[in-house]
Simulated scan of single mutants.
Amino acid sequence: MPFKTRAVVALSQEKVVLRQVTVPDPAPGEVVVRAEYSSISTGTERWVITGQFHAPGAKPMPHPMVPGYQKAGVIEALGAEVTGLHVGQRVFATTSRMADDEVLPGWGGHIEHSILPQREVIPLPEGLDPVKASALVLTQVGYNGGFRPPVKPGTPALVIGDGLVGQWLAQALRHRGARVVLAGRRADRLAIAAKWSADVTVNVRETPLEEVAKREAPAGFDIVADSVGTRASLEQIIPLAHHESHLVLNGYYREGENLLDIQLLHGREITTHAPAGWTRDRLIATLDLVAKDAMHVRELMTHIMPVEEASEAYDLVLRKPSEFLGICLKWQ
């Protein structure tokens, strides 16, 4: 029998609430996961809720919807044919299927009881802080970008963007041996980056990137990586790359920001990487680094808020009345 559970619901582009929704019983091969913590993908979810996340020419996701795609929780039930998992096991989970007459799943991440295929459920190491696993999809986005270009010890790399993806991208590059310069515009986020994510931080409101490049990579950067997702940010960092370097496109390039003069790359023979989405193998590899404290998650969570304050959490995301970096919702 379908049953009621709580979910974060975007009623419109401006209003997000916590309310009851209906989910189905698990089908064969599906798992029921009760959320403990779910983390907001602050960039992507903002674009989704405000109708800016869609393929060129396609329609945005309709409202009302349940946004998000990442949570840590505990298995409450198993459908037939599920093997290798057990009730009470702490896991990471992504999306959810729904059976609601009014609310669409979106991706269905921020929901107390998720109904999802076993392939989207990953067991957590014993004793791992669930907050560290609650943002695994987005942490994996940074991992994916950071593991694309070749890296040698001391490889000079420039990351632009001081948000979560930029910081995890920088952490992945740094873990592989690169010397990472992270550029951004927010002093509070750069202070966190200086402690956990990068070798050098630069506030572009105070110091021109060109000045830093002359000091840190006088011959040009081997790797330039964008997590901002604008044409302007790309045009800012590409000239700082040397001949036959690597460009990582680790942002979401919405309509109006998704066109680039290819000659900028052609003239320097730059190899370009365009990572996107998630895979189970990459999630598991990222989780391994998180468990080993090679990638830092809790340290980037500036706000851990009870899910009853979901409206206030999304007000931060949509209207930015005050500074934040990572936002995690606590369900229990």
Rank of each mutant, 00 (worst) to 15 (best):
T302D: 01
D188W: 09
G108N: 09
K292M: 14
L283Y: 04
A213D: 06
L11M: 02
F221A: 09
V33R: 00
V31G: 02
V8W: 04
A35T: 15
L78A: 06
H296I: 11
P218M: 01
S41W: 02
E257G: 05
K59S: 14
E206C: 11
T5K: 10
T83H: 15
F92M: 03
V180T: 06
P239L: 07
L240I: 04
L287E: 07
T286D: 08
L136N: 04
D25F: 01
L325W: 05
H175L: 12
K152A: 13
F92C: 01
A285H: 04
T302I: 15
L124C: 08
H54S: 06
V212T: 11
P67F: 00
R19G: 00
S38W: 07
T207M: 13
E257W: 03
G127Y: 12
I40K: 00
D100F: 04
H303Y: 14
A194D: 10
R231M: 01
I284R: 11
L104P: 08
P28Q: 05
K292E: 07
V165Q: 02
Q52T: 04
P321A: 03
G146P: 11
W331H: 07
F92L: 03
P239Y: 09
H273N: 06
Q13R: 13
K152T: 03
H54P: 00
S39T: 15
V21M: 14
R268Q: 09
R280E: 11
G256M: 08
Y37C: 02
D293Q: 15
P67V: 06
L128I: 15
H243V: 12
R19T: 12
R179F: 08
A217Q: 11
L78V: 07
L240H: 09
H266F: 04
R282G: 08
V91H: 10
V17G: 08
V200N: 03
G106L: 10
E112H: 02
R282W: 10
V9L: 06
L169K: 00
K15W: 00
L158S: 07
K4V: 12
V103C: 07
E244Y: 13
V48A: 07
A55E: 09
A157Y: 02
T44D: 05
M61N: 07
A72C: 11
L316I: 05
E211G: 02
G229H: 08
E30D: 15
L136Q: 08
A55H: 14
D100S: 12
A294Q: 15
P218N: 03
E14V: 11
T44Y: 01
R174C: 06
A213E: 05
A241V: 12
V141C: 07
I49K: 00
T230G: 04
P105L: 06
K132M: 05
I262E: 02
H296G: 09
I49M: 01
R34C: 03
R215W: 05
E210G: 10
S41E: 00
A225L: 09
D199R: 00
S41L: 14
A27N: 09
A135K: 01
G79Y: 06
G106D: 07
